[in-house]
Amino acid sequence: MNLETKMSLENTAHTGRPRLDELVPSRYAVRIGEIEVLVVSDGVLPLPTAMLGHNIDPAVRATWLKDMFLPADAFDWALNVVVVRSGDQTILLDAGLGIDPDLHLPRAGQLIKRLEAAGIDLASVTDVVLTHMHMDHIGGLLVDGVKDQLRPDLRIHVAAAEVKFWEAPDFSRVSMPPGFPDALRATAKRFAEEYRSHFRLFDDEYEVAPGVVVHRTGGHTPGHSVIRLASGGDRLMFAGDAVFAVGFEHPDWYNGFEHDPEEAARVRLRLLRELADTGEQLVATHLPFPSVGRVATDGDAFRWVAAFWDY
């Protein structure tokens, strides 16, 4: 990493001797003006490939997978979480899967140990911003012992519409593997029960810290939100689950976890157009780690332009 990106987030990392179970990078630092950003891998979720687009001909989906050199039946979806430092605030954007709710996902839920490996103390986290309350975005805070390490004045920013939705969630339009709806319901309910006193609700937009603004988009879930970082002319959007790898070429494909797939597709198209116009950087939960890149137009579709690694 060069001097420009060797920031205090990275300076706190004391990795010690290499670990045999950590043979690939699990964190990546970038700077957005005066804002420090660390993308942390929470591991991977093995999911059926039908989840990429359940509204299209399976043969068309199979062709896309073949062209991308991906397996036909199931592959590993990345899980990315972001740590942000702006001023005196340390902000966690989503919290990973954390626990394995009997779904046999042993390679996910790595966030807590990877924060520790990066030298990031949970007690230093002042704010958590949730893109939404699916279990792979909140479960890290439900790991045994984590709540005891968090600050008593921790603020958890989440859209009011999201909290309301999970009081009686509608799964009538999703296309998930068996077991997932029940696990999602149970995890969201438990999270709300344990952390409600920390919730800081917003309607459509809220500035969490200087240059850190959360915007509700809806679509994926009613309260799904994206977080925009802006400082010194630099811009980055953490898009949560609004954008998936297949969505650049096929933004109209419905992801199996979308509760309102038509609206999710409209949101995705609008965000991709915006990102292509502005040239700002993009990070999303399920894009391949470290997921830092930009969006370009490619005829009537879009193209993902991954950032060159800076190390």
Results as ranks from 00 to 15, higher is better:
141 L>Q: 10
253 W>S: 03
199 F>I: 02
143 V>T: 06
214 V>M: 05
188 A>C: 08
193 E>Y: 05
216 R>D: 12
157 H>C: 12
255 N>I: 06
144 D>E: 15
223 G>H: 06
185 R>Y: 08
143 V>R: 14
191 F>C: 06
173 R>A: 14
124 S>F: 02
248 F>V: 00
132 H>G: 08
178 P>Y: 13
241 D>K: 04
163 V>L: 12
234 D>H: 12
205 E>F: 01
141 L>H: 09
141 L>N: 07
180 F>P: 01
127 D>A: 07
137 H>W: 00
118 A>N: 10
218 G>Y: 07
178 P>S: 15
257 F>W: 09
238 F>G: 07
151 R>F: 06
160 A>H: 06
239 A>W: 09
120 I>W: 13
160 A>Q: 12
163 V>Q: 10
161 A>P: 02
189 K>L: 10
215 H>W: 09
227 I>R: 04
129 V>N: 11
210 P>V: 05
198 H>I: 01
157 H>I: 09
206 Y>M: 14
218 G>R: 08
152 P>I: 03
118 A>H: 02
231 S>I: 02
245 A>Y: 05
211 G>Y: 13
234 D>S: 09
118 A>S: 10
234 D>Y: 04
174 V>L: 09
243 V>K: 12
225 S>M: 05
251 P>H: 06
143 V>F: 07
156 I>A: 13
237 M>V: 03
228 R>Q: 15
177 P>A: 15
132 H>A: 05
121 D>I: 00
150 L>K: 02
131 T>L: 14
240 G>Y: 02
196 R>Y: 04
156 I>Q: 14
216 R>W: 10
167 E>M: 06
149 Q>W: 02
233 G>V: 02
127 D>N: 12
215 H>R: 15
231 S>N: 09
164 K>V: 01
180 F>M: 14
177 P>H: 11
137 H>Y: 02
252 D>M: 07
124 S>P: 02
212 V>I: 03
141 L>Y: 06
144 D>R: 08
196 R>C: 03
256 G>T: 03
225 S>L: 04
254 Y>H: 13
143 V>M: 12
201 L>Y: 06
242 A>L: 10
198 H>E: 10
157 H>E: 11
150 L>M: 09
210 P>K: 11
168 A>P: 01
136 D>K: 00
216 R>S: 08
144 D>I: 00
246 V>H: 15
176 M>P: 03
243 V>E: 14
183 A>C: 10
134 H>M: 11
120 I>M: 15
221 T>S: 15
122 L>E: 05
179 G>C: 11
181 P>V: 03
139 G>L: 08
200 R>K: 13
202 F>M: 10
120 I>G: 12
137 H>A: 14
243 V>I: 15
206 Y>L: 15
249 E>Q: 14
221 T>F: 09
173 R>N: 13
126 T>D: 11
135 M>C: 01
221 T>I: 04
233 G>F: 04
239 A>E: 12
204 D>E: 15
231 S>G: 11
146 V>S: 13
204 D>C: 04
245 A>P: 05
121 D>Q: 05
192 A>I: 10
